[in-house]
Structures are given as structure tokens and as C-alpha cells.
Design a protein around this nucleic acid. Structure first.
Length: 553
RNA sequence: GCGCCCGUAGCUCAGCGGAUAGAGCAAUUGACUACGGAUCAAUAGGCCGGGGGUUCAAAUCCCUCCGGGCGCACCA
């Protein structure tokens, strides 16, 4: 009996009890909580439904609980139902009903854990989106890990996900980048507000090499800058793409901001807002009346000098995504951008869409670089920036991704490169990966001595550690669903650590392969199913995190 | 001044109203002539930042104060 069956059974019982009492209270499947209690003495599953319903019914919680428990206990597959504390209903499954899950999981394979929460929903996930003025520094790395993992989670819930990188190749920052390249080429000092560092020298040299003629022969400085801009950005972009791919993150769309400005999309978006009455002129500029939609001040969309204001790109981009058919649009930003949330939600409302539904903004707290416990100030000018490659070189892709995705995005992360690289055993990713490798080793050994999956008798899985392990395995689909609903992939990492622990403890007390001259029994065969089921779930969980599941370590 | 995030074991962090608040690391002590010891078992470690409130029940929700991070442009 899996959790879904048990939920349905409990709901049916509760509905019958309510009906008998002639209660006016209606309950749906979402109203009957069922959770795994921390304490093993409280059974396999527990529900507080009686306490929830006690008040509206005017009945003592324990009385209601007893009533539900009695009927529930008569259900096949349920070994015992107890009422405890203020009115908890504690349910213990019989071994056969609980153990059947092992076979279900092995047969489902990679499909175990999938759900239909976002079946058929078009979802656009925009993340990283670092400016192409330099390599991806560690601030962007967090989103590369979390955003990609979230995309995998949504996909496992049936979402039609597009990973999108907004490539900011328009505006003053790019001009500064181009001027920095020229300065490097001419051997001049880095311009004010410019970019410095080894990578600028390299990109500049590559631009010079790539140019078919002699850059020095071009008389017009603006023309030279345009060469450095377009070619330099292209090289920078290629480097960024490569490091993301090396990190295991493949974007479906790299969207160029420039395109919005050149294609007339910006005007289109402003026109649209004008039709909707959200645009006005004042002080020689064009404004978006965002205060009508909850923003704290109106925003300039066209500056008095005729240039587009910053928000106009966002307007056009959002409208473009909607016109491309995306129902759900999620943008992931660093905490230093949280001030944008209001204006972007105002924009969403102004377009007639639903804020926090058609558009969501996820804010991730910043990542600090720490050395020997002291926060390091990163400076592009001083060249003390730690970039994606540095992190990967130091600790590897799996360890880096896992460590980044393991924490809630609401908490700040300190990255101490020395510590992360030196004390790799501190990273729980190895604990989880080791558990997976162990499931493979156990299976190899078992098969070598003649254990196979030709028999499965779930009633034999009676050991304490087996029922705990089965309970953990049963939780996986709900964990994935919850991670999707809350946009919190870190839950999957935490879950995988719990599962790995349960597996290691089971391994310690239950043998799969017979030892010595022992004959192979159905117990061994059944345990092989359980072993393999654990391997499947660990593999599926790690896949959702973008971390490899090695067969040997 | 206004807004967002955080404050939980020595450290790093889980815990979207439930039972005795958990894990990893660090510390102490044990377990391999048994499927991989990157493991397991045990011990120790907590006014969940302070104070009010909401209710059968608060680390969790609300208010307030303290502490830390970040943000409040016709800059991008």
C-alpha cells in the first residue's frame, strides 16, 4: 500500500464517519493530512485529521479519532491503528503491504517520483543571465545549480520547461566592456568604470586575431569599438556558454536583449501599455504609471534624451515570453535585485496578467566568498573574482552543484574554496553517492552468488530498518512534488541524505547475499528488490539535482 | 525612513501549525577472518535572538524590539 492508496482509504473512512454524524463539513483529498512521524513508535503514517475536524464538529478529538481508527483498522493491509496524544491517528501497515512498494519502484525505474502537477504547462525559467562582460562569478553559479535543478523538478512534474538565459547585450555596460578591450589592445590603462583582469587581455587578443584586416587601419574610433563590441561579446558569450555546459547546465534559449530594441519589441510593449492606459508623458519623458498597480513610484520607459529606460527592456521581454506562449514565467534574481519585484509585478498586472502566477520572481540570497573565515571582497578591477571554473576546478561539478543546491535560497551561502576543496568528505554528496554505489556493489555481489529477482515476498521484509527504509522510499514522490510547488529543490537533497542514511543502516543489519554455504532463499531475493529499489530512488533524486550517481567510487 | 531575506547544537544548515526540535561536520567511546569502514552504533551538546499575541497545539502565523545581509535613479 503506497501513500496515495492510504490517503484515499483514509479519506473514504473520514467521509463515512462524517456522513454518519450528519456533519455539514465537506472534506477533500487535500484535507486529510498524512505524514510520516519522526518517532517510529508512532507507526508508519500518522494523521491529525481528527484534531482538525474536532472543532467544526463540536466533538472531542480523541472520540472522533477512535471512531476513524476503528474503521480504518479493518482495512486490508493495515496492521494496526492507534490513537495517541491529543488525537493523532497512528497507522502501522503490515509488512506485505508496505513492502510491495519495492517491486513497484524497481518496475517504474526512472519514472518513480514523477507526477502531473504541471502536466502540459508551459514554463519559462530564466536564470543566471549574467552580463557578457566577464566570466560567470560565484553569484551566478548558485542560480546555475538551483535553476537547472528546479527545471528538472518541473519537468518531472510534466512541465514543458524552457531554460532561458537573458543575454544583456545592450546598453552602457557593454560599451564599457568594448572600451576596456580597446584599452587592452592599445596598452592603455583600464578606463574609468571599465573591466580589468586576465580575461580582458585574452578576449582583446582573440578579437585582434579574428579580425581579417588590420584594426589599426580603421580610422574611425567608433567603428573600432563596434568591432570589439560585437566580436568581443561573441567570444565572451561563447566562454560563458561553455562553462555552463561544463557545469551540466544546457539552456534552451539564449535571448539577446539587443533583439528587443532592434526588432521594435520595445515600442510594441509600450504601445500595448498605452492602449491599456498605463502610459503618460511628463518632463519630456515617457512614463509607465506603475503606481496604479502597486509599485511605489512610476517608472520611466523612454528617457528625455530619447533612450529607452531600463524597465522598457523588461516590459518587452515579458510580453515577448507571453506571446511565445509561456503560461508560467519564473525569473531568478539575486537579493541585490529584490527591489525589482514590485515594478515587475505592476507590469504583469498592467498587461492584464496575474502577478505571482504568470510571473514569479525568485530572490536568492547572495553568495559570499570566504577565505580562512574572513569574507573576501570580490573586485573585478582587482582581479580577485572567483568564477565558475575556479569553483569547478577546486571541488568538481558534483560537489559544487550539490553544495549550492543543498541550502534554501533564502539563506546566504559562504563558499570557502580551501575548505570545500580540502575537506571534501564534509560534503554530504559523497555520503549519498556512496550509498548509491553501494547498492550497485551489493547487487553485483548478490548476483555473483546466485541471488536474483525471480521471487518477491514482501511479507518477509520485517526488520525494523526495512520498514524505515520502505517508509523513506514511499515519501519520494511527495518530496518531489513539494519541491516543485515550493520551488525548493534543496528538499530533494535533504531527502536523499535521509534515504542514504536509512539505506546504510539497513545494509548494516540486513544481508542481501547469503554468506558462506548458506542457501539462497526468497528473503535474499526479496531484499535484492529492496536494494535495487533504493538504488533507483537515489539515482532519480540525484538526477533531479544534476548530480551523477556513480556505480563505483 | 521604507521594503525583502536571515538569526535553531561549538561550526554549516534542515524543519510551508503538531507528539520527546533534527542532520552533517567537529568532540568522546565502541564495531571489520560477514555483501565496500567514504559505513554503522553509542555519548555529549539547545531559554529555536528577546518580549508580547493568535489556538486544543507556535521554531513555524501576527505585532514589536535587538542583531546581520541586501535594496530603495530619467544607472544598467
Amino acid at each position: 500500500m503506497n501513500p496515495a492508496d492510504l490517503s484515499a482509504t483514509l479519506l473514504a473512512v473520514v467521509t463515512r464517519v462524517l456522513g454518519r454524524r450528519g456533519a455539514e463539513v465537506a472534506v477533500g483529498i487535500g484535507d486529510v493530512p498524512l505524514e510520516r512521524p519522526r518517532n517510529r513508535d508512532h507507526g508508519d503514517w500518522a494523521s491529525n485529521i481528527a484534531m482538525k475536524l474536532a472543532k467544526p464538529l463540536g466533538v472531542a478529538p480523541r472520540v472522533l479519532a477512535e471512531e476513524i481508527a476503528t474503521e480504518l483498522a479493518a482495512t486490508e493491509g493495515i496492521a494496526a491503528v492507534d490513537v495517541a496524544g491529543p488525537g493523532f491517528i497512528n497507522i502501522t501497515l503490515d509488512a506485505a503491504a508496505a513492502g510491495a512498494l519495492a517491486r513497484v519502484i524497481v518496475e517504474a525505474g526512472a519514472d518513480y517520483g514523477r507526477g502531473d502537477l504541471y502536466a502540459g504547462v508551459t514554463m519559462n525559467l530564466e536564470f543566471v543571465s549574467a552580463n557578457p562582460t566577464g566570466p560567470i562569478h560565484i553569484g551566478g553559479v548558485r542560480w546555475a545549480a538551483v535553476g537547472d535543478s528546479l527545471a528538472r523538478v518541473f519537468q518531472s512534474q510534466g512541465g514543458l520547461v524552457t531554460r532561458e538565459y537573458y543575454f544583456n547585450d545592450h546598453g552602457a555596460q557593454i560599451d564599457r566592456f568594448a572600451r576596456s578591450l580597446i584599452a587592452s589592445w592599445l596598452g592603455e590603462p583600464t578606463p574609468e568604470d571599465g573591466y580589468a583582469g586576465q580575461y580582458i587581455e585574452e578576449i582583446a587578443a582573440r578579437v585582434v586575431d579574428a579580425y581579417p584586416g588590420e584594426l589599426a587601419d580603421i580610422p574611425d574610433r567608433a567603428e573600432v569599438q563596434e568591432v570589439f563590441r560585437s566580436v568581443g561579446v561573441e567570444f565572451m558569450f561563447g566562454d560563458i556558454k561553455k562553462s555552463l555546459l561544463d557545469f551540466g547546465v544546457a539552456f534552451d534559449v539564449y535571448f539577446h536583449e539587443n533583439e528587443l530594441h532592434e526588432s521594435g519589441a520595445v515600442e510594441h510593449a509600450i504601445d500595448r501599455l498605452r492602449e491599456l492606459g498605463a502610459i503618460y508623458e511628463a518632463d519630456g519623458a515617457t512614463w509607465f504609471r506603475s503606481t496604479d498597480y502597486g509599485d511605489d513610484k512610476d517608472r520611466v520607459v523612454i528617457k528625455s534624451d530619447g533612450d529607452a529606460g531600463y524597465i522598457s527592456g523588461d516590459l518587452a521581454y515579458y510580453l515577448n515570453k507571453r506571446e511565445r506562449g509561456f503560461e508560467r514565467n519564473i525569473i531568478m534574481l539575486g537579493a541585490d535585485h529584490h527591489g525589482y519585484v514590485r515594478r515587475l509585478m505592476a507590469m504583469t498586472a498592467a498587461f492584464g496578467d496575474t502577478p505571482y502566477y504568470n510571473l514569479e520572481i525568485m530572490i536568492g540570497q547572495l553568495v559570499n566568498l570566504v577565505r580562512d573565515g574572513v569574507p573576501q571582497r570580490m573586485s573585478k578591477r582587482a582581479g580577485t573574482v572567483v568564477v565558475l571554473e575556479d569553483l569547478v576546478d577546486a571541488v568538481g561539478v558534483d560537489a559544487a552543484r550539490y553544495a549550492l543546491v543543498r541550502s534554501s535560497i533564502d539563506s546566504q551561502i559562504d563558499i570557502d574554496l580551501d575548505q570545500w576543496s580540502r575537506k571534501t568528505n564534509d560534503n554530504p554528496v559523497f555520503y549519498v553517492q556512496y550509498a548509491h554505489a553501494r547498492t550497485n556493489a551489493v547487487a553485483r555481489n548478490a548476483i555473483a552468488v546466485g541471488v536474483d529477482r525471480s521471487a518477491f515476498d514482501a511479507a518477509l521484509l520485517t526488520h525494523e530498518t526495512e520498514s524505515v527504509l520502505l517508509g523513506n522510499l514511499a515519501e519520494f514522490p511527495r518530496v518531489v512534488r513539494q519541491a516543485a510547488e515550493l520551488r525548493e529543490p534543496h528538499r530533494i537533497a535533504r531527502y536523499s541524505e535521509e534515504l542514504a542514511g536509512a539505506y546504510h543502516r539497513w545494509y548494516d543489519s540486513c544481508r542481501v547475499a547469503p554468506q558462506g554455504d548458506e542457501p539462497v532463499t526468497d528473503l535474499h531475493r526479496t531484499r535484492l528488490w529492496l536494494n535495487d529499489a533504493t538504488g533507483v530512488v537515489l539515482r532519480n533524486a540525484l538526477a533531479l539535482l544534476g548530480v551523477s550517481a556513480p556505480e563505483r567510487m
